[in-house]
Nucleic acid binder design. Structure first.
Lengths: 191, 191, 191, 191
DNA sequence: TATGAATGAGAATTCATTCAT
DNA sequence: GATGAATGAATTCTCATTCAT
């Protein structure tokens, strides 16, 4: 999935079986038994790879969170934009697009999509670094501290995740299309 | 608690026992059995007042969410400020203060503190209306729709809740004191 | 069973079902499931009365141990013997007899039949006191301490239990009939 | 360990890993998995050397039991005592000393320390014969049968083991120092 | 021989919910 | 309304054992 993380056939099967069941039936309604049956492995195999259901869930959320940001970053890079503002808004745009295409996933990860979590694994997964570097190269000339950079990144990702969840999944207070202008305006104001 | 909601001695005991256990041990680790023992009532009594654990949890979160906003609103009104900007920032300030004094509660409700939930009960609990009216009276002259007003309210409360949770509870990406200036700046820019 | 210990119908059923299964199939080969089925109660009911299988086993052993000594004591009293020596040897005789008639039970309890365990519950079950008093009234005039009395009681019960187990259950090193004379001789020498 | 029993590096590692775990965590709480990890060998290797956990346990207990008696016998022989009574009491004394120095081991083996078990392996491990011969040479001139000799040996070892376990491990009914005089007196009376 | 991933039967335990008192 | 013993389905998790490498 992400560089350096090798997975056996069975581990992968457990991941995707669990992901499908969690999104379809909900986490609480998914028994470990359901997961192993869907994955086509023995019950004991689950415990070879994961401590328990929560452990598996945490890892799924981490993987998916990274994937969203990583892919949004890749798409942004391809557009070769000149200004930082454009790059950032494009990055946000791609995140929203990703969520719009996969609201089920958003539903699963939204409570945990946070730069707070991702910054911890940044050294381990170099993909996470790209995002950080986009910010850092922009701000460091202005004498802004690393902490402030991360605070900014955090607040933006948090806001995007939260607004997307409420508008896309719950359609509260309004559908995403109506929320987008406000969201972009807000982000422009923040930076 | 809030107008029109009478509670018997046993119901109150269940509420506060559950609240303490949820915050101390976590929701999943709290069994209904634990709650009734702590509340000093019989197991069957639980079902006289609540459908199940989730029902009780939802009501606790709703109560606590409303309480935060209501008390922040009361404190704001007392200061008799002239401009809308001042009133709003003061309102936010009081919410943050409330959370700083009771981070345990923040931990419990943060995932559900959302204007999206509260607007639904607005007609039932008139205290919620005050907050809405502060916004409405400011914006309606400018020809802004009700939906846009609620979107704004929503985005602000969401952002405040999310930043408070991460900075106060998790101290991510930085403690609340460092996040406050950014947060206030952001909100000023939004409105 | 013993005074002051009330048992509901279900608790009793669990006790005797477990006792039968433990002696028939062995402790490890008996699942809690087997016990509840035999007792005709629901699985959860087991946990209303016992912490786990070991808890139940401990209580069975305590009960049975007490029963052996108590009944041997009753039988001894009925014979209205004059000398302490006679009373003690008769007491031992009845214990052996009890074990001979119920070797299955001996097999279950032998590792835990010890005055060390029983003295702790002495205050709770007054039947245990009778045995102690037989010794105490004999020795106290001779200025022997309580501790020494209990040590003697302990060593005798321990020896009887151990010899009975090996000779009756395992027929090692010889059947009980051949061991009895040595055992009685030994006890006579001890006192 | 004992003559004729060769052990590979892995087998030895399994023995001592198991012994440590059995004494530290208890037998039931020690899984074969724990043993192989501690021994640093693969799971499958366990089954090259042992049938199952019980098989390993039995062999450990046998080894340790033999070791206690063998070493006590060696120490006794060194003292070159004239009378049988002296030799026997010295033998018992050394057994007690051994247990006092290693109560953990006593805890593990006490339920199985019995001449009943050891006599069976006597032909295989000639060290066990020495103990038997000490008795036999004393008693045979008196026309006592082999069975009676073994019964005596059995009853003494059983008593010593049982008293040591209760007094050293459980300190019931009194510490070993207080029990020793009674124990020696008893043994003297038996022989 | 040695390995250790994989197995899957089976054991323990939990806990929401009911209902006779 | 209040009680709490009883329920039993559901779920988690363990662990001895196998076997292809």
């Amino acid at each position: 999935m992400f560089e350096g993380i090798e997975q056996t056939r069975r581990e992968k099967a457990l991941y995707s079986a669990a992901y499908e069941l969690f999104t379809e039936k909900g986490i609480t309604n998914t028994a470990i038994n359901d997961i192993v049956i869907k994955a086509g492995v023995a019950k004991g195999t689950f415990y070879t790879y994961f401590k328990n259901k929560e452990d598996l869930l945490d890892r799924i959320i981490l993987n998916k969170s990274m994937k969203v940001l990583h892919e949004a970053m890749l798409a942004t890079k391809e557009e070769e934009l000149a200004s930082f503002n454009e790059r950032l808004l494009t990055f946000v745009h791609h995140i929203i697009q990703y969520f719009e295409e996969d609201p089920i996933m958003l539903k699963l990860i939204h409570k945990n999509l946070s730069w707070g979590v991702l910054r911890k694994v940044r050294p381990k997964y170099k993909e996470m670094n790209d995002i950080y570097l986009m910010f850092k190269s922009e701000y460091e000339k202005e004498g802004i501290t690393d902490l402030e950079i991360e605070s900014l990144l955090f607040i933006i990702i948090d806001l995007v995740g939260s607004v997307c969840y409420h508008s896309i999944v719950l359609e509260e207070p309004a559908p995403i299309d109506q929320m987008k202008p406000i969201l972009f305006k807000t982000i422009e104001n923040i930076i």
